[in-house]
Design a protein around this nucleic acid. Structure first.
Lengths: 207, 207, 207, 207
DNA sequence: TATGAATGAGAATTCATTCAT
DNA sequence: GATGAATGAATTCTCATTCAT
């Protein structure tokens, strides 16, 4: 598929990928400018379209590429033998917060992709997301020790409450980060705050 | 301010508002086309700019207009004398779900506004949001009977967990609605499902 | 012709004239905005076109109107019984410099009209100017005592040299004024400077 | 800076320059239409903006370009070792009249630039003009043999009178040319006429 | 007289994509 | 593989003028 691109020397590949993900992450699909991408990557206009047929294909290539990067990181944790759902979710969230720091554009890109409104790519993204989400969630939910939960509560509700709480927390953090230098982002402050919520959940939902 | 516009006969006002909110809701600020708006509203190019100076003003007008509509609906509930936080949140969420059905574009527009990345309007939106959110949340959090909560838990965490759960639930519903005919949207299915989560929260967080 | 307009009460006439001449003087024909004119004059759009058929007619009306004002001031001096050409020119130039202070927009308007490039009005302006200039110059040149000039020089050249010198001087002054408050414009400085040039001309061209 | 443009083959460069200077010279900055320019130059809309970022840059490019052309012609004369101010001015005026015939649009463009009122470019033009005028005039006034002037007259006035006379004469010629076919423009008629004025000046201002 | 809503051609500028070199 | 000149439809916005009220 993109063999032409992958035959480039790695340094050039990275220059192109970084330029493109930065542009898409900050401006969305429609407003990203291929002009800016080639300028930032230091290549000619024609070359970009030589490797990636068009803007749409470039976007979807990046999406698939980074999703793979992401999954390689997450899967070991999701697949792992941790049976305590709260701990499992905590591990995944910490990974997520770590990745925000390491690849800010990548994460921005992927989460913006979720809200991408451009008609041109919406359908293709939806297909990919559904597949990805279904697979990941089934893994996340598998191999859980349900005996840890309190007896009289609806397990399904409990699982969702935990996940929405962590999702809400992540969004809150991301909101706080916006505009701040990433260097100042300190997980030593974030994780204890997260644990406050997890403690409450553990106290109430677990037996 | 927009007296020129409000002097129009109501039918025309609505045609313009609907056309504009539909376009902005589906494409975001930058990619919404004023051309499409005037075409859908059945008016001339010049007229739109006769009423609203420019695209940005039109967008912010819609934002303020719908926020007012929204607040008129919400405020009575938020201000009301319900002291049970869970019940209060339930009332507000039901209103929200109602409004999604009645004004899908409006709700889409307002919630997309929250993620709007266009530099041209970001600052103005941020100002408005901060003000609105601060006011509404302070109301939502006021007049709560904290004695209802279980003794040994962190109240702040509990409040957040409740709100994130309902937020997550709303998003899930909105996700389900996408693309479906709104007529098939039945609150008789949704509210019981929501109550399932609220019951779990009540059982665990309340005394 | 413009009887409808002249039947208005004087105050309204002046408001409209002032608004229009200010706009045309500052932006030229094409870039003057009828919108700005009606706003500044405090009348409706329709009314302007009720009195003056269109933008072009309004412009030419102003031109004719102010030219008349100008001529009423100049003619007595030009027609007068002063036979010394240098003195006559001096008188006219002083009048001109006075008018710059009294009606800055009018003078600006008329002198810009001379450089107006808009195809829409060029021809009409040229006709008027040629007529006006021919008439005025013939008056200026009439009734001159040629015996005052030195014997051996070409009189025609001398007349032109005098006029071009005063034209150059006027332009130099107007250049200096630009941007300065008109209140600071002091003929007590200007006239002696002008006389310096006139003295030189008198010493050399007159006998 | 404009290397992209200068890499084009000369024929195309000229087509674009001629189309642009013609449009600007005849309509001024604001009313010149980039649409008309590309139509006249036989290029696409996008291409003009590929070479020159925007209308303003195109205008200023032309200004600088033609000023350089002009200066290359003028400087040898201005810098030259002619010490007779009248002769020096005569040489420069003849050059000017030559250039009017060869590049009528260029000259029109540059002299209109002096009266350009558009706020968008006024400041940039003023800066350039001030610099250019200061430099050129200081050269023109340098290396003059003041002993040629009559003893009892004010030298400063004399210099100005000479320059204003030649300026007035040039303008008169340019006025005459307007609309006439340039082929009929004959310097064999113009120069003797100019010399008539110069003779009068020499007779009266020189010793 | 007087209003101001309504029109639509035309303005400058952007941008993904193509293709000859 | 690599370049960048070239395209032209689409963008937002302006403006003189008309006309029903």
């Amino acid at each position: 598929m993109y063999s032409k691109f992958f035959n480039l020397r790695t340094e050039k590949q990275e220059r192109i990928i970084n330029a493109a993900v930065y542009e898409f992450a900050n401006k969305g699909f429609d407003n990203a400018s291929t002009n800016e991408i080639v300028k930032a990557a230091g290549i000619s206009k024609g070359l970009l379209f030589h490797y990636f047929n068009n803007k749409k294909d470039l976007y979807l290539f990046l999406y698939d590429y980074f999703l793979e990067v992401l999954m390689e990181k997450f899967n070991p944790k999701i697949d792992g033998d941790e049976k305590d759902f709260l701990k499992k979710c905590r591990d995944v969230t910490i990974l997520k917060l770590d990745l925000i720091k390491i690849y800010p554009d990548m994460f921005n890109f992927l989460s913006n992709a979720h809200f991408e409104e451009s008609v041109e790519i919406k359908d293709d993204l939806d297909k990919r997301e559904k597949k990805m989400i279904t697979e990941s969630f089934s893994k996340l939910y598998s191999n859980i020790d349900y005996n840890l939960f309190a007896e009289n509560i609806d397990i399904e509700s409990a699982l969702k409450i935990i996940m929405w709480t962590l999702e809400g927390f992540s969004n809150q953090q991301q909101q706080k980060i916006k505009g701040k230098s990433l260097i100042n982002l300190n997980s030593e402050e974030i994780i204890p705050e997260m644990d406050k919520y997890l403690d409450t959940l553990r106290k109430t939902l677990y037996r």
